[in-house]
Structure formats: structure tokens, C-alpha cells
Design a protein around this nucleic acid. Structure first.
Lengths: 193, 193
DNA sequence: TGTAGCATGTAAGCCGTTACATGATTGA
DNA sequence: TCAATCATGTAACGGCTTACATGCTACA
């Protein structure tokens, strides 16, 4: 049954969300992912969620409970015992790759010399604002779970995310300051010290 | 000419590397990306590099210089004036998205309660080791450029990366310690304080 | 009454990877 | 002479997104 090509990490991420025990619709799972996964992985598109759930169901790792509540049919998914086993197996056996960062601002900063300083400053300012928004969202998540020992691990992860945001803010403002100083001091130099 | 579907960020990243002025083969560009892009974006696969270069050449943003050095033909690519213009335009006009993190260790940590503590500790230890390796590589890059004012922006980016690695190390060891303390103190609690 | 949110999917297609294929050059 | 590195590509295909399509429910 079912070819044993290993599933991508995203499948396990979703299975992991279901492992917290609630029965969820695809729609609810997406919301869950938006509040959690998106900070350190990705929150897959809706269409991807449904595809993933179908695949997990096919392997027997989630149970699909179709409910015809009146006219409409909604499907609630819950992790199965086999799914819990598979998740545990994956956690033990797979070796986590190194963190992978896609940092559009850092990428552009690399080429900062090609644009006027104000453009660079604009990137950094926008980034700081985004950072505030993301941090607020993540802090809210943390506040919802940090007193509950059942969510001790998720709380660690949330704090981890906040630490990254703090560092990002510090670094960004640091770069801004360096840029300001550079403007004041001489320009034409080729090598310093 | 050429449909104006905007190119993906990766194309501009490669164009950006070429903007530093050297004439590069696809092979050399890959090495360059491995030393730079990989820390805050991605270093595309070789095949992707060649595909990208072909596409950039098609649009006239890079010039391809085919050299038949004896038997073999190697192609050296350099950014064109049009390419420089397009790169500047992109830097000004595109709005950078928010940083995107794929953090396999954080993802697994979320599910730490499903595996024995030693497995979690293993993830963290391995991560710390990887971190050391990455940091050493990045520091080497920084040391190669930090005295040269032409690379002031790249140096900022490298320092940014190092700041992230420092934060990651601190956070990781912090989680390790929290895990140790948790082991000593009581387990069965549901809510604390 | 109409709009926002709930809920589910299919289709097309891009991005990027791995696998495969080929061959020259250089140094041990 | 053999292996590693230089160098260039093609093919297949997986992952994931956007666009499209559909319809219910609750609320203002």
C-alpha cells in the first residue's frame, strides 16, 4: 500500500499540529498554521492543506470524519494512532537540516551601494514596522499558552521566535546608525584604518 | 520583446552578484552564491544557475562571452548596462517581503513532548555544532571584505548573519538549560504559578 | 440584502531540485 | 593513471502558489 517515498517536512508539520489532539477542518488547520507554523516554517496555502490532508488520510495517518450538517458536508480530521506513531518515528529518525533563511531585506542591503541612501533607509524602516507587527502577533500566541504546561514546548518555540525578532530589530537599527555615521564621515576612502 | 512576467527574486540575486563587476562562468557564480547568497537567501542548484543565466541573457541583462579555449567552450557572463539599470529599478521599485524562516529544529521542538528528552537534546546539540560551522564560514567571508570600503554593504550583511547566529546559539543553549531544569523540578503539574 | 467569513476543492503553472549525461583539465 | 575539480547542460518531477469555481452561514 502507498509508495514509501518520504513525505515532505510540511506534511509532518501539519500532522504535528493535529497531534495536539483537536479535530480540525482544513480551514481550521490553515488558521492554526497561520498562528504557529508561519513563524518558523511556512503556512501552506489552503489548496495545499487539502492536498496534504488527503495524502495523510490515504496513508491512514489521519482519520477523516465527514459530517453532513444539514446541506453541507464538512470534513473534520484527527490524527490516528498510526499517525502518532509515524510522527514519533519521524521525530526520532529524521535529521533536521540547518535553518534556512530567506531575508529579502538583507539580500537588497547587499546591493545598497546601487541605490540612494534613502531607499536603503526605507527598506530598514519598513522592515522594523513589519517586525513590530509580527512580534505582536507572536507575543499574543505566547501569552495564550505560556501558563499551560502542556504547551511548554510550543512556548519555547514562541520565545525562540521572539528572540529572533529582538535580534533583528537590534541589528536593523544598528545598520541604520552605521549608515548615518557613514554619511557624516568621509566618502571617497577605499580602505580604512 | 520577451514577455514581461517579473523574474523571481533569485534571478535578481544572481544579477546582483554579477553587479560586483567580475566576469563569471556559471560554475564560478555557483561558488560565489555558496559563499554569500546561501546565508540569507538560497544558493540555487547548478542547473538552476545555468537556466537563470540563459534567461538573463535572453533579456539582455547579462552578456555571454563564449570562449573556445582549445577544445572546450566555457561561457563567461557579465552584467550589461541594461542589466545594471534593471537591477537598480528592481531595488527601488520592488517591496521586500518579510523575512521567511525555515527552522527544522524549532519545528521539531514544537513537538518535543512526543519524544524522550535525549532526542530533543540531540537536536539542539547538533544544531549548535552546525551553527559553529556556519559561523566560521561566514566569519571567513567577512574577514575577506571588511577592510574594503567597496564592500561596506556586503560586510553589513555578513555581520547581520553573524548576529543571527549569535542569537541562535544563545537561544539554543537557553532552551537546553530550561530543559535541564524542567527535568529536576516536578513533572506532573498542569499549570504553574 | 449583501458582504464577510466558513468551507472545499481543481487546474495551471512556476520555482527549484535531483538524477542523468558528458567531457576537459589538473595534480597526486 | 586515476580521482577530483572544472564546466555545462537536459529531463523529470515534486512542492507549492495563484487563479478559478462553488456554495453555505451569520450578521449588519
Amino acid at each position: 500500500m502507498s509508495q514509501d517515498r518520504p513525505l515532505p517536512t510540511t506534511s509532518y508539520a501539519l500532522l504535528g499540529l493535529l497531534s495536539f489532539g483537536r479535530e480540525l477542518t482544513g480551514y481550521e488547520l490553515k488558521q492554526f498554521a497561520d498562528r504557529t507554523l508561519r513563524f518558523y516554517w511556512t503556512s501552506p496555502a489552503m489548496s495545499q492543506i487539502y492536498t496534504e490532508l488527503a495524502r495523510l488520510a490515504e496513508r491512514g495517518w489521519v482519520d477523516a470524519d465527514e459530517r453532513s450538517g444539514g446541506e453541507r458536508t464538512t470534513t473534520h480530521y484527527s490524527i490516528s494512532d498510526a499517525g502518532m506513531g509515524e510522527l514519533r518515528r519521524w521525530l526520532r529518525d529524521s535529521t533536521p537540516e540547518f535553518m534556512q533563511l530567506k531575508h529579502p531585506v538583507a539580500l537588497r542591503l547587499l546591493l545598497g551601494h546601487l541605490v540612494p541612501p534613502d531607499v536603503v533607509r526605507g527598506w530598514l524602516e519598513t522592515y522594523l514596522a513589519q517586525l513590530d507587527g509580527q512580534r505582536a502577533a507572536l507575543r499574543e500566541v505566547l501569552e495564550g499558552i505560556e501558563d499551560d504546561d502542556r504547551y511548554a514546548f510550543p512556548a519555547h518555540v514562541a520565545r525562540w521566535g521572539l528572540a529572533i525578532y529582538d535580534e533583528e530589530e537590534a541589528t536593523t537599527t544598528g545598520v541604520e546608525q552605521a549608515l548615518d555615521e557613514r554619511r557624516v564621515s568621509g566618502r571617497g576612502r577605499r580602505r580604512r584604518s
